[in-house]
Amino acid sequence: MLTLERVSKHFGGLTAVREVSLEVRAGDLLGIIGPNGAGKTTLFNVIAGYYRPDGGRVLLDGRDVAGQPPHAICRLGLTRTFQIVKPFGNLSVGDNVMIGALNRLRSVRAARVEAERVIETCGLTAQAGAPAKTLPVGLRKRLEVARALATRPRLLLLDEVMAGLNPAELAGIIELIRRLHADGLTLIVIEHIMAAMMRLAQRIVVLHHGETIAEGTPAEITRDRRVVDAYLGEEFVLAQA
C-alpha cells in the first residue's frame, strides 16, 4: 500500500531523515520507534505531504505522491494525526469530527451522522457538544484520532497519540487502535511507550539519527544490540527477561 524508497529530508546542514525505505502492506500495523529527534515526525511529514523529500520516492498504491499537498494525499486515503494536537479549538467536538467526515461526504447532514458514529467509536459522545479547547489532553488525543478516522482513511498515521495519557486512558486508546486494526484499517504508529508498542505492532522500525537501524518483530527488536544501545537501554531488556 505504502512504499518508501530511500527517502531523505534535510534542513540546512542537518539530515533529519536519511535514505529510509519501508514497506507497508494492507492490513499491517507498523510501529516506528526511536529516541527524540530521530526523525519520526519528519518522516510522517514527508509521507503526508507537509514536506517535500529531498531524495527518494513515496509510493502510495504504486503512485509517487512526493510533492503533493496534504489534502490531496488525504483524499487518496492516507490521513495523519499530529503529535502536538491541533483541534479546531473554538468549534465543538462534533463539528471537529464532522469537518473530517466532509472529506468523503458532500452533505453536511450525512457528515453529521457519520461523525456521531465515529465519536461513539472513540468514546467522545459525552463531550460531543463541548468546544474542543475545553477538553483535557487525554480526550484531545482521542479527538485527534476521531477526526482523522472520520475522513475514512485506508492508511492511518498516528503520531504519539498515547503520550501524556494516564494508565486508564492508555488502555482505552490501545483497545481502540486494536479494534480499528481488527476492522481492517492499516496503521503506522509512532510511539515512545515501548510496552504498548510490544502489544500492538506486528513489525517495528527503529529510527536513530534519521536512519533505520533495525526492523523486525517486537521480539526481534528487543534483542537487537544496536537498538538496545541507541534507544531501549540494558534495563529494558533485563525487565523484559
Binding site: A72, T81, L102, N103
Partner: peptide, 13 residues
C-alpha cells in the same frame, strides 16, 4: 482554526 489540521483532513485550504 488551524490550516495544517484542515489540510490533514482533505481540505484544500
Amino acid at each position: 482554526e488551524d490550516e495544517d489540521a484542515a489540510e490533514a483532513l482533505g481540505i484544500p485550504s
